[in-house]
Amino acid sequence: MSEVLPSFPKCYKEKSWPSLFCPGCGHPIVLKMLGQVIDELAIAHKSLLALDIGCSLLAWDLFDVDTIQTHHGRTVPLAAGFKLAKPNGIIIAYMGDGGAYAIGLQSLLTSAHRDDKITVIVVNNTLYAMTGGQYAPTTLCDERTTTTPEGRNCQTAGIPFPGPETLSAMTTKNAYLARGSVLQPLVLKSYLKKALQHQIENRGFSFVEALSFCPLNWKTDAAGSIKFLEKMQNYFKVGEIKCPKISKS
């Protein structure tokens, strides 16, 4: 072995690493899986990575892939617009749970309902991480955040928002919807790959939620992060929620 280099995905911009994410953050685990998928599908040259406001934007410049950033929650309509203008381009909307399920929910629902041929990745860490850990639609019942110091009261604040399940009710059979977790990165990777293949073959809307660590706002060490994510997985079930059968013709 002559030269030992880190096992970065090829589409990474090595110079930008280590990333700006906090130690133990789940975002870069999702990004690494995404990077491996971009490599395997050989789509770096025709992809556009669209980043939402939130910790997602720390992915800026980590990839040697065209990247764009827009207003909080508006990444999905931007992605839909890109696809209209460039049907052969590959668009990846990368956002947080706050961006997707709070301020950007209407945009997400509309796009899914229209069956836009885009891929949306939502990193669910149960709160608004970048702004200091405020409660989000996804906050678990009784979870303490800076704005639910007594824990989320699900009697008065509703249940943690089930993203892909909600989309399932309003999409056609063409949509691909899945939920993965950074605790099983390779399973998450297989979902990301299917979602992007879905877009490449122009089959329909594709969506992957990734349950992810936020040790900074959860105030957890590695063991605590893993324990909390397991708790999240008890509520947010990991798996494929809608996976169209592909007829081999």
């Binding site: 030992v4 880190p6 690493w17 280590p18 906090c22 130690p23 133990g24 660590f213 040790p215 060490d221 590695a222 063991a223 992060s225 893993i226």
Partner: peptide, 15 residues
């Protein structure tokens, strides 16, 4: 191989 330049000491690998 370990790359000190990239490790943030989060401990996830250990866990």
């Amino acid at each position: 191989a370990r790359f000190p330049y990239l490790c943030k000491g989060c401990g996830l690998c250990i866990e």
